[in-house]
Amino acid sequence: MENGTMPSYFYFTLFKDFVHMRYLILILTLTVYLAILLFNVIILFVVFKERSLHEPMYIRISCLSVNDLYGSAGFFPRLMVDLLFDTNTISRTACFVQIFTIYTFAVWEYTILTLMAYDRYVAICNPLKYHKIMNSKVTALYMALASLYAVFSMGLAIFFSARLPLCGTDIARLHCSNWSVVRLSCGNSTLNNNIIGFFVSATTVFLPAFFILYTYVRILIICQKISKEFRGKALQTCIPHIISFVNYSIASFCDIALSRYDSDKFKFVALFFSVGFLVIPPFLNPLIYGLNLPEIRKNIACLFQRSKVGHFPK
């Protein structure tokens, strides 16, 4: 086994292939990030300002926006600094902090989507028990337990990754990822990390995904037995969540699948898919819920009408 080291810095190799486009990418990145900030802040403002939206479903939508802002903050500012100053390096500490931020964002995204699926399942399949099962205390408890598990599981994975002796410092991405660091390790020391990575992925991604699929199978079965009018209202509240779930699942799967292959063979594809789950869901989620849910859409419209006449709600 080769002797490894604990390097102080890592180098993002994708930057050198797009150095001639860095200012264009910087402008696009800044535009997308500002849009993410604006869209998600509007959702948060509307949900917390309007008392009629102080219900479990809308609170979870606001939690999704908070998480999207959190994940975006772990990626976009660092990327813009790298593009602006043409720096392709990141310190070891900053790299693992970014890994922790991005991965906890990913786990919490699935957690919130899972709770939202369960919320729709209870509302449609057990409407009489909805307010008893999905009250604020139960929701807060679920979120707290899921958050603690996310922090623990990601902390454990990063702890083992940080101890690996490394035989390289090049990361073929625009951000740090746990698997990118593990691939740089020397010898066969990646076995434990692969086991831990599989366990974390199974409990934080695949199990929630199967649960979400199960809830929607049950919802579809129930919808076949109810009136057409109620079925339309039920599906109207489910469609935004289904779009968000499919959108995030595809983006995450592409990132996971691509990370296992040599991205040097298709750099542009690597560039797009390695950041897809950090860009597309935070950008689209507020649009999906803002445009599809009547209550949120109505309050956003009222907000802009008031702003045009210079009158904001007190």
Rank of each mutant, 00 (worst) to 15 (best):
V81A: 03
G187C: 06
V217C: 10
T215K: 01
V122A: 01
Y248M: 13
L128H: 03
K137P: 08
S201M: 06
C95Q: 02
T5L: 10
G232P: 07
K132L: 07
L64W: 02
M1P: 09
K265G: 12
T93H: 04
L258R: 03
F96D: 06
F245W: 07
W108E: 05
F230D: 15
F12P: 05
F85E: 06
Y214P: 10
A209G: 07
L145G: 12
H241Y: 15
V47E: 01
L113I: 07
Y216R: 08
E295T: 08
T169C: 11
S227L: 04
M154Q: 08
V200D: 08
S161E: 02
L38P: 10
L53F: 05
W179R: 02
S263C: 12
G168A: 04
F45K: 01
L79W: 01
W108F: 14
N292P: 03
L164G: 06
I36F: 03
P294C: 09
L30M: 07
I171Y: 03
V41G: 07
A162M: 13
S8E: 07
N188A: 11
K233G: 05
F199N: 10
F304L: 08
N192W: 10
Y248A: 06
F48W: 07
C63I: 11
H175D: 13
A251Y: 08
T114R: 03
N193I: 07
V217E: 11
F96W: 00
L53I: 05
V66A: 12
C302H: 05
M143L: 13
L287R: 02
S72W: 00
Y103L: 14
A270R: 07
S91V: 12
T139L: 13
Y216Q: 05
I42R: 06
A123W: 03
H175T: 11
L115F: 08
S227C: 11
L148P: 09
C167I: 01
C186H: 06
R218G: 06
M154Y: 02
L258N: 11
Y11W: 10
I25C: 01
F277Q: 12
A257D: 10
S161D: 09
F18N: 09
I102S: 00
F198C: 09
F152Y: 13
M1Q: 08
L64K: 00
R231L: 14
L293Y: 00
T13S: 11
M80G: 10
F100N: 09
R120M: 01
Y142T: 02
S8Q: 13
A117E: 03
T29Q: 11
R22D: 05
I296T: 00
R306C: 00
F253E: 14
P56T: 09
L287Y: 01
P165M: 06
D17F: 10
R60D: 01
F45Y: 12
V107A: 02
L284F: 10
T139W: 04
A94L: 12
F283V: 14
T89D: 03
A35V: 13
L79E: 04
D119W: 02
L284I: 06
M143S: 02
L141N: 14
D86M: 08
N178P: 03
R51H: 07
R22G: 04
I250Y: 01
P208I: 01
